[in-house]
C-alpha cells in the first residue's frame, strides 16, 4: 500500500454525544485495511482520548489523519485555553475537568498519559489562550 489516505474531521464543541465519531471512523478504515487488532486498539484509544480532550477543554477542534503503509499520523488541534503547565498535565490523575465531565466518566486525569502510552510518538504544541495541538503517530509494526 503506497497510497496515503487522508481524512479531516470537525470535532464539535460541547457535543458529548458526537464525541468519538472521528475516532470511530478512523478505526473503521484501519480495520478495513487489515491493520493488526493491537495497532487498531492503540490508535483508537489514543485518538479517542485526544478527541474527548478537544471536546472537554478545547471548545471542539479539528482532526487530521494520514494513513500510509507503515503508520497512522493523527493531529488533533483546538483553539482552547492551552495548557499552562504541560509537565503537570501529563501526570496521571491531574485533571482540570469540571464535575460535569467527571459525571460523564471522563476527567480522571488519565487522558494525556493514555495517549502517550498508546502511541509511538506523541508531541504536544500548546500556547495559553491560543490552543493545543496533539500529534500522535502509531507504527503498524510496533512491538
Amino acid at each position: 500500500m503506497n497510497n496515503v489516505i487522508v481524512r479531516d474531521y470537525d470535532i464539535p464543541a460541547n457535543d458529548f454525544t458526537a464525541a468519538g465519531e472521528a475516532s470511530s471512523s478512523v478505526r473503521k478504515i484501519l480495520v478495513q485495511l487489515g491493520v493488526s487488532p493491537y495497532v487498531v486498539k492503540r490508535t483508537s484509544i489514543a485518538m479517542y482520548e485526544a478527541e474527548i480532550n478537544a471536546v472537554i477543554h478545547g471548545h471542539g477542534g479539528k482532526a487530521h489523519v494520514e494513513i500510509d503503509g507503515s503508520k497512522v499520523y493523527i493531529r488533533i488541534s483546538d483553539e482552547g485555553p492551552g495548557i499552562p503547565d504541560l509537565e503537570l498535565a501529563m501526570q496521571e490523575g491531574y485533571s482540570t475537568a469540571p464535575d460535569s465531565i467527571r459525571e460523564m466518566g471522563f476527567g480522571a486525569g488519565m487522558g494525556l498519559s493514555n495517549i502517550k502510552k498508546h502511541s509511538d510518538i506523541m508531541k504536544i504544541d500548546t500556547e495559553v489562550n491560543k490552543g493545543t495541538t496533539v500529534h500522535i503517530t502509531v507504527f503498524f509494526n510496533a512491538i
Binding site: 475516532s23 487488532p37 486498539k41 484509544i45 466518566g105
Partner: peptide, 14 residues
C-alpha cells in the same frame, strides 16, 4: 454509568 460514551469506549476497546 449510562451515556453514549460508554458505548464509544466499548467500541474503542473491543
Amino acid at each position: 454509568l449510562v451515556n453514549p460514551q460508554v458505548v464509544r469506549t466499548a467500541e474503542m476497546m473491543d
